[in-house]
Amino acid sequence: MSEAFIHLDSVKKVYRTRGQDFLAISEATFDVEQGELVSLVGPSGCGKTTLLKILAGLHGFDGGEVRIGSQSQPFNPARDIGMVFQQPLLLKWRRIIDNVMLPTEILGLPQDASRKRAYELLDLVGLKGHEDKYPYELSGGMQQRASIARALVHDPKLVLMDEPFGALDALTREKMNLELLHIWAEAKKTIIFVTHGITEAVFLGTRVVVLTSGPAKMADNFEVGIPMPRTLDVRNTEKFGEYTRRIYRLLGME
């Protein structure tokens, strides 16, 4: 059996505040294959954002093992990570196209080719015709689409999303869920998607990792056996209900 693209083994993170230890993550053990869309779901304080930041190389950890990439699946942490946050965090003074270009400028990639790619990605996320607008001229959902394009522009192998639709209204959120599945299918990226929405987690994920808080630990890790492409209707199926109930039960909400 070949090695997984991402391998986490008993990852543990402890925060120390005023002499008190606070366990942010423990027993996080799961593998992610290339091309998967993994939902990290759990209540606030379960350490899902911390785990994402460990994967991004922004945080250290206090135990266990984290490996991204392998012999056959090379991974360069400096340029193979794309990030999407809860807020779009577009630069107000840059046009949408130039916002999308930002990572390629920082990485020093050839600008002509990158610009072409940025235009293609804006088309993919449904922002064709808005390239020369400023962020304030776009709605929140559209801004978040632009930030997804920005996360893809340098062609990273792994895209980390931290509750990207958490600040959107419910209707826009559903639409963005469908859009994300479409983008994921087109861009063929490995995506790790942090959310506290259980429905969202099951709907989007090829795999769901459940984290619980108090004490913070990984509680479950299962594959979602609903084939892609998915439509909003799958949420009414019995199978979908089984998955969501399974998560609700783990979070002690049944």
């Binding site: 190389g57 942490p77 400096a78 990570i81 807020q87 965090l89 990572p103 920082i106």
Partner: peptide, 14 residues
């Protein structure tokens, strides 16, 4: 500077 924006630049080793 938004802390998340700082993270974004940091992941790209800016």
């Amino acid at each position: 500077v938004e802390p998340d924006l700082l993270d974004l630049v940091r992941t790209l080793r800016g």
